[in-house]
């Protein structure tokens, strides 16, 4: 390793005390990794017969998927697909509306109160730790099956993501311009709208678009637990073993996700 030798030597000179510790930590990680892998591989339940069977089954699956049931699209897929997009968009919007105040509370320079910062961060972490499918399960339990549950699931899962990034963007706003507004005697809300907002605006839109892109992907599965969207159509087709219709759904998801990604990258390139 020609390039890493030199830094290591510098390491040894300036950080002699820490090098053995670092080494030890690194070897611990390697060892733990290998151990975890070995233990996992030995104890995980895999039925070999199923595995040998897999290529055949896969072939069978693809054979059943082809030809794709294009005719199913207008009647069975289109509405569900549009619903998925609405769930993703509205979910992102609701998330942003809720995430802005929480993100502001999480930024120490905007709200200089440690307890409020920690409380806001706790809310954000809680939101991120629960998968959108779990949020969907919970909201289906509360609101019954349908798009409302899906929209709220997307929204609640996204709060953590959007809020965390908004908070971080706010904390990176240069102190100078904020100080200047404070010196003019501006009220807090005006400093927020005329000092912080212009500074984080590009980051904000970028975060929103990024999350919308992710949400388009995520909202496609929500139907599996009854929370609306194309997942419902997919689930129905799978339950009835109509694999050509499954293929239709998968294809529709594929196209929408790719188009969403292209739209987002284009907007980011042109506008932001």
């Amino acid at each position: 390793m020609s390039t890493t030798l030199v830094p290591d030597r510098i390491d040894a000179k300036t950080w002699t005390r820490f090098t053995p510790g670092q080494r030890f930590a690194r070897y611990t990680v390697y060892f733990a990794l290998v151990l975890a892998l070995v233990v996992s591989a030995r104890s995980v339940e895999i039925i070999p017969e199923f595995l040998w069977d897999a290529p055949e089954q896969m072939q069978d699956l693809f054979k059943r998927m082809w030809p794709i049931a294009w005719a199913h699209y207008p009647g069975g897929v289109h509405d569900a697909l549009v619903e998925t997009l609405h769930i993703a968009s509205l979910g992102t919007l609701f998330a942003v509306i809720m995430a802005i105040p929480i993100g502001i509370c999480a930024a120490n320079n905007v709200v200089p109160s440690k307890p409020i910062n920690y409380l806001a961060k706790l809310v954000l972490v809680a939101s991120r730790s629960v998968n959108s499918l779990v949020w969907a399960l919970l909201f289906v339990g509360v609101f019954g099956p349908g798009a409302l549950a899906g929209t709220l699931a997307i929204a609640f899962r996204s709060i953590g993501f959007v809020g965390k990034l908004i908070g971080e963007a706010l904390e990176e706003v240069p102190r100078g311009s904020i100080e200047a507004l404070q010196a003019t005697g501006s009220p807090w809300l005006s400093i927020l709208s005329k000092g912080y907002w212009p500074a984080v605006e590009p980051a904000f839109w970028s975060i929103v678009l990024f999350r919308w892109d992710i949400n388009v992907r995520e909202s496609a599965v929500l139907g599996l637990v009854g929370a609306g969207g194309i997942g419902l159509a997919l689930n129905a087709a799978i339950d009835l073993f109509q694999w050509d219709r499954v293929a239709m759904c998968l294809f529709a998801i594929f196209v929408v996700v790719i188009v969403a990604e292209i739209v987002v990258t284009q907007i980011r390139k042109r506008v932001l």
């Binding site: 100078g176 311009s177 200047a180 010196a183 003019t184 212009p198």
Partner: peptide, 14 residues
């Protein structure tokens, strides 16, 4: 009390 700063401290994107 008006104030003028070394680094101007304008809001750059306004």
């Amino acid at each position: 009390i008006g104030m003028v700063f070394q680094e101007y401290n304008l809001v750059e994107r306004l």
